[in-house]
């Protein structure tokens, strides 16, 4: 995470996107969570030399981005920013695995390149799916969904509070860094000592804040349990969404659709 300040802006932009009321946004969060997980699992269940079979899965993000009115360029940019780890581990495949797997006329493709391409496609598909989930659902609703689906309550509450104070403390930290950068010259003052003092200060303030929040909770009858009332209802439309997509994923996993289409074209050309 090189530039965390801009990451915070990202969080708040994704948050803004989740306040729309498109057909995708209105779906039950549990349904979206399950469908997303099923999508990811199906994509990852392909063999490592798989490319063509993965491509039809693009349809899921494409449809959701279109119907959910999500900015495609922005999402792609976010995917690219997150790419390095998968890229650096994946790039060793072409170096290690040099056996020729694909022969396209004079062009020979080694297994390594094929599996590398496969890794990058997986990466794009899974990351986009997760980003779409958050941009079309909102973090709080995802937490509610987790809790309703049996995640421990303390984890759900912890997630909600963390998200709530992310913005408050993010502001505090950026004020601290701004104050420092206004008074540092030629990287003097950016060293370890100043850094730990700043973090220490921030931590003390954080601990004080936790104490005040606790007081505010106690003043309103807090007894260790946070009650959140948010009725969630799964309707026919939600079920249709989940079953429809899951069915399509299974079909796309089982049948090599691009192969057929390519075959047909090849037949026609003959």
């Amino acid at each position: 995470m090189a530039n965390i300040e801009s990451s915070f802006l990202d969080v708040s932009y994704l948050d803004t996107l989740s306040y729309q009321t498109t057909i995708i946004h209105r779906l039950d969060p549990r349904i979206k969570l399950i469908t997303t997980l099923f999508f990811i699992a199906t994509v990852l269940s392909f063999g490592k030399y798989e490319i063509a079979g993965l491509i039809p899965f693009v349809i899921y993000p494409v449809v959701l981005i279109a119907l959910g009115n999500l900015p495609i360029a922005y999402l792609l940019k976010k995917v690219l920013v997150a790419a390095p780890f998968a890229f650096f581990v994946g790039i060793f495949n072409p170096l290690m695995d040099r056996a020729v797997l694909v022969q396209l006329g004079p062009l020979e493709l080694s297994g390594g390149w094929v599996s590398f391409a496969s890794i990058m496609i997986r990466f794009i598909l899974t990351v986009t799916a997760a980003l779409i989930l958050i941009a079309s659902t909102g973090f709080n609703s995802v937490c509610m969904a987790l809790e309703k689906m049996g995640a421990p309550k303390s984890l759900a509450v912890q997630l909600l509070l963390l998200y709530r104070y992310l913005f408050v403390l993010g502001d505090e930290a950026s004020r601290l860094t701004r104050a420092r950068s206004l008074r540092t010259f030629e990287s003097r003052g950016l060293g370890f000592k100043v850094f730990t003092n700043m973090i220490g200060q921030l931590l003390l303030r954080t601990l004080d804040r936790a104490k005040r929040v606790h007081l505010a909770m106690r003043c309103r009858g807090f007894d260790g349990e946070i009650r959140v009332s948010r009725p969630l209802k799964i309707g026919g439309r939600d079920l249709g969404f989940m079953l429809g997509w899951s069915g399509l994923f299974v079909l796309m996993r089982l049948y090599p659709i691009p192969q057929w289409m390519g075959g047909m074209v090849a037949e026609l050309l003959k």
Binding site: C143, L161, R164, R209, R212, V213, A216, C219, I226, V228
Partner: peptide
């Protein structure tokens, strides 16, 4: 009790 910093008081999502 209304606290000085509303960020302390408004802790729910």
């Amino acid at each position: 009790m209304v606290f000085q910093d509303p960020d302390d008081q408004l802790f729910m999502p």
